[in-house]
């Protein structure tokens, strides 16, 4: 474990917590893409499938973190699609998730480190996570604005994988550890946030709201 990965995971936890708090406190999921949250839930379940396959003694933090990620993302989907369904902005959350899931699944079968079920699921989860934020960014571009709290969520969510890139550089240099698939997907994922990062740093930090077109 290194500082970059630690802060990356903390940033990821913060993102999940910010979104849950936003929905719970405002009792509304306006401005939140339910499809993105569904895709994240799929990512966690397919990536941490080993938790279900053989019983895990919750002795180490990694197992606990995996359970937190899975339960929090499923609970967020429950809030969006059931509890606060009336506030779900289905008209603007219109990006076809199939256009993300099918290519990720296809690519996972073509480019992977080992052709076995668990590894393919893990690879699918990595590829899907890289594009899972697209419906959320698409929704913001359709509504033309993002609530400040949602911007903080996106900043934390985007920072997590950006910090992981620093973690991979660190591990390459000090542990000569390389996980090419995760690195390439992580770079693509972070690049998708660049436009938002620019808006966040030039606007939200100054207390303004993000309104598109910028």
């Amino acid at each position: 474990m290194n500082i970059f990965r630690l802060f990356g995971d903390l940033s990821h936890l913060a993102a999940i917590a910010i979104l849950l708090l936003k929905i719970w406190k405002t009792r509304s999921c306006a401005g939140v893409s339910g499809k993105t949250q569904l895709l994240f839930a799929v990512c966690f379940i397919t990536r941490y499938i080993d938790l279900f396959l053989h019983f895990v003694s919750l002795y180490n933090t990694e197992k606990v973190m995996k359970l937190i990620y899975i339960s929090a993302s499923v609970f967020t989907c429950y809030l969006i699609f059931f509890k606060f369904k009336a506030t779900y902005d289905g008209n603007h959350d219109s990006m076809r998730a199939e256009f993300l899931i099918v290519p990720a699944a296809g690519l996972a079968c073509l480019i992977n480190t080992k052709f076995d079920a668990i590894e393919i699921l893990w690879t699918f989860s990595i590829y899907l996570e890289a594009v899972a934020i697209l419906p959320q960014l698409f929704l913001i571009s359709k509504t033309g604005e993002a609530e400040t709290i949602t911007s903080h969520y996106l900043f934390a969510q985007g920072s997590y994988r950006a910090l992981y890139i620093l973690n991979w550089i660190y591990r390459y240099h000090y542990e000569s550890h390389v996980d090419t698939i995760a690195i390439v997907a992580g770079v693509v994922q972070t690049i998708l946030y660049c436009d938002f990062f620019y808006l966040y740093i030039t606007k939200v930090v100054k207390g303004q709201k993000i309104v598109l077109p910028a």
Binding site: H12, S176, D179, T180, A182
Partner: peptide, 10 residues
Amino acid sequence: PHASKKHDEL
């Protein structure tokens, strides 16, 4: 560098 056998990251 060696490709990691087990994925040890979240």
